[in-house]
Design a protein around this nucleic acid. Sequence first.
DNA 1: TATTGTTATACTCTATAACTATA
DNA 2: TATAGTTATAGAGTATAACAATA
Lengths: 159, 159
Amino acid sequence: MAATPPPSPDTQPPTAPTTAELIERLAGSFGLYYGDFTLAAATAGLTASQAKALSVLRGSPAPMRALATTLACDASNITGIVDRLEKRELVRREPGATDRRVKNVVLTELGEQTIDTVRARMHSTLSGLDTLDDTERTALYALLGRVFPRGTDGSESTR
Amino acid sequence: MAATPPPSPDTQPPTAPTTAELIERLAGSFGLYYGDFTLAAATAGLTASQAKALSVLRGSPAPMRALATTLACDASNITGIVDRLEKRELVRREPGATDRRVKNVVLTELGEQTIDTVRARMHSTLSGLDTLDDTERTALYALLGRVFPRGTDGSESTR
DNA sequence: TATTGTTATACTCTATAACTATA
DNA sequence: TATAGTTATAGAGTATAACAATA
């Protein structure tokens, strides 16, 4: 596909899109993003959930509980997800410093390399972002913030 | 484009966001969207996949095969998904007109009502969209088209 | 031969409930 | 009592492989 000459092969309404049209486009975009992410993860032998977990941990280690909150799933699921990641040496369970009930999940070297690979692939897949100028970047960033006025980083997404 | 006073509680970089920051925001937004959609579907007693299938069929009936392509999953999965929807009277399997191997999946009245309920809920959840003016709507629509220059409606997203 | 839909199988994700060991 | 993590369980999604009916 070309860089992005004829701007877009998209169905661009002659007038401003309606809310319904915007929702449809959001749904389509999200479907594509999810497919891209799933594929990028699969390339590294990971499921989407596993890649998401590693991505969260890339920021900093976290207790099982916090991981469940961030991933917006029940705590019981984390056990299995971390089990599988640990079996592959991508993460380690470390004892909590003060509270002995807590187990901190930490990325291993391999885990860091692996998630970085996934991110790199996403970066190249979303190459369209590199064609945006500063004004467009700022606009997209702000508009998404308007439409999803929550953590955006996933923090409060847990519902 | 300062049409965005300080209403947003967002972390807005003083300069244009980098590609990495944009990807992070996209990931966060998509996570929120997915959570919203899953919740909206659950309210109607549906899983996200089931709701997505109904949403596709809301446009028009489709053969099992086409449904698999649109939902970007293996054909064998559709059997189970449609089985469960059919058991709840949300869809019907109708024999293909010409090719007797084909089975067209059609929404029932109840199926239409159900998916419309989910859509209505999404519409109210994404109320932020209603606060966008025409310029912003057009910009968001076009920018997403730039970043996800494919079907956007899911058509080519498959694979 | 190729395609449509199905079945069988296996794995992962998901939530619920009950359990343990801490606090 | 309350919390962190685990286990057991069940349902759903997913892919692979093999199959019957049809093209």
